[in-house]
């Protein structure tokens, strides 16, 4: 079990030589506030990494994360979740954090984003900036709203812009939902299929209508928030008023329909 690994790791300490290794000792990690097992893990990961600079990068990663005001327990979890953090150069780290600040993420938000989605520090700045620009220019979100989107749904930065645009247009045109409402209901946390499934289900049941040019509908549509931010049981019981069996069959039918549509589109694209 774990005891055994711990033992061998303790022996491993003496095998490591060089300046950086001395700085990144188990003891120093424990002194930084990591628990024994976290220290073990970090130590092991770094010593396994190839290249002379790995220990140096690890140290800079640790200090940068601490500098954000995160505590050792959080930092430990982040490194476990996202080991790529070890590979980032100190200067890069600073640039990226600075960039996130420029996107409007203040101290509290920055901490929250990094702890929920450490990958945000791994992704090139350009990509984040492109998403921000896309949201502002193509979807007409305000600067403030873009910040909120990044804070609430940081995974958006890894999404394909074409698909993002489709999702936005779907919700804007088909569902008639405005930007503020999208932000409020944390739209970008959900996949297009999740959004579409719930919306289409309501629509076919006669409980949702696309507003006309004047923005009017014959029925009162449920708020996007109440459709998306609830679990499936609540959605079915309170919004769709349908059984789980019906929704299950519906989703399978939709998956087949959409797949056929995609096939059709691909076919049209090549022919």
């Amino acid at each position: 079990g774990s005891d055994c690994i711990l033992q061998s790791n303790h022996h491993g300490v003496t095998d490591l030589s060089g300046k950086h290794a001395a700085e990144l000792s188990l003891r120093s990690l424990v002194n930084m506030g990591f628990t024994d097992s976290q220290a073990e893990q970090i130590y092991e990961t770094v010593s396994k990494a190839k290249g002379a600079s790995s220990a140096k990068h690890a140290l800079s990663a640790l200090s940068s994360l601490f500098a954000l005001g995160l505590n050792a327990s959080t930092v430990g979890k982040l490194l476990e979740k996202c080991p790529q953090l070890y590979t980032i150069k100190e200067s890069q780290f600073q640039q990226r954090i600075g960039n996130l600040r420029r996107q409007g993420l203040g101290e509290g938000s920055l901490q929250r984003v990094v702890s929920h989605y450490p990958q945000i520090l791994v992704v090139p700045m350009k990509k984040i900036n492109n998403v921000g620009m896309f949201l502002r220019e193509k979807c007409l979100f305000t600067v403030q709203q873009v910040t909120e989107i990044l804070r609430d749904s940081p995974a958006i930065i890894e999404e394909d812009l074409g698909e993002l645009e489709y999702k936005f247009q779907y919700v804007y045109f088909r569902m008639g939902v405005k930007q503020a409402e999208m932000v409020k209901s944390k739209l970008f946390r959900f996949t297009l299929n999740e959004v579409r499934s719930r919306h289409c289900f309501l629509e076919r049941r006669g409980l949702y209508q696309t507003p006309d040019k004047k923005g009017q509908t014959l029925i009162v549509n449920p708020k996007l928030n109440s459709i998306l931010t609830v679990d499936q049981d609540t959605f079915l019981a309170q919004v769709a008023k349908a059984s789980a069996e019906e929704y299950d069959v519906f989703q399978r039918l939709m998956a087949r329909e959409w797949q056929a549509e995609e096939h059709q589109e691909n076919f049209e694209a090549v022919s």
Partner: peptide
């Protein structure tokens, strides 16, 4: 149908409607 069956079938209509509009 919405007008006629909404009244005729009452609370059953949404379920029937969705089925009619699916394969």
């Amino acid at each position: 149908f919405d007008a006629a069956y909404g009244i005729q079938l009452g609370h059953l209509w949404p379920s029937v409607r969705a089925a009619l509009l699916c394969e």
